[in-house]
Amino acid sequence: MKKTVVNHIIIMAIAIVAGGMLAKTLHEKQISTIPSKSAISGVPIGGFHKFASDVKWMLFINYMGSLQTINEDNKDEVVKRLEQIIDLNPNFEQAIHMGAMSLSNASPDQAVEFLSRAIASEDPTLKKNWKLPFLAGFILMHYKQPAQYSEAARYFRMALERSEGKPEDYVINSYLRARGNANGIKDARLALLDSLVFEWKKTSGDLMETTIIPNITERLLVAAQAARDSHPGDEKVTAIVTEVSATLGDKHICSSCLHSYGPGDNFCAHCGNKVKPYGQCSACKHVLKGNFCSNCGVKAK
């Protein structure tokens, strides 16, 4: 064999080994950068999956425009078209969101299935998306028959955790209501109060855990006041009010109605209950305005 042929074969062998090793490294790196890559359809379309999903998305919108409503007759076709879009582009947030919304009435299970696939995705964008778990919870709570409150609460909680400390009020309220309903409490106010107490107890006491609900104390006070007004004499509500007022004693809260009172007040302006006064001069009981009493000149303690 000629020397040049041998040289050619040696070069090829080295290139095959080096190329194989580098390709495997690159493939792994690509999968770690785009986790959803492995979920993309294996249909060989020259790497144009994303563009194909865009085209199918526009066709889907056209198709949806031709429908009066989504019902038993056409839901399979809608699901099929959505499946095709998501197979080609598993990160297509808008298609997942709008598809699930459009299917929520006719096929809530299928809608939640689409959403749960996207929620479980390791894709950096979908991983942070709170709208998808919120929608899944919303469908399970409002469209699924019978409503699945426990599962809905799980999704709402996920939405709260993904909100990076700035959740929308409607997400918080949905979570609290779903959690309360999951515990078998039918009344919306009592359900809200029950969940808020659960979250609040995490932050108080020895555990001192953090809660995903912002302004938990203020929310709890408002919910307890509303529950007390709507369910006067309810033993559970009364027990909660007592517990909350005892814990928040230093916040000058009326132990009867949980409304706050001002310095110098001896009785609650809302319910007339006797309250523990504060901000008074120890000698003349005048309201203190600074370090010394403006009435008798005694130094404030």
């Binding site: 090793m21 690159l26 790196k29 690509q30 950068t33 785009i34 790497g47 994303k50 950096p124």
Partner: peptide, 27 residues
């Protein structure tokens, strides 16, 4: 065995599916 060495994978150049994700200059 032959992947990458003999069998080319042009998908390694394909970031079309996630063009908003940075591939990284090293990649």
């Amino acid at each position: 065995i032959i992947y990458g060495g003999v069998l080319p994978d042009l998908d390694l150049f394909n970031f079309k599916s996630a063009a908003m994700i940075t591939a990284g200059w090293s990649y």
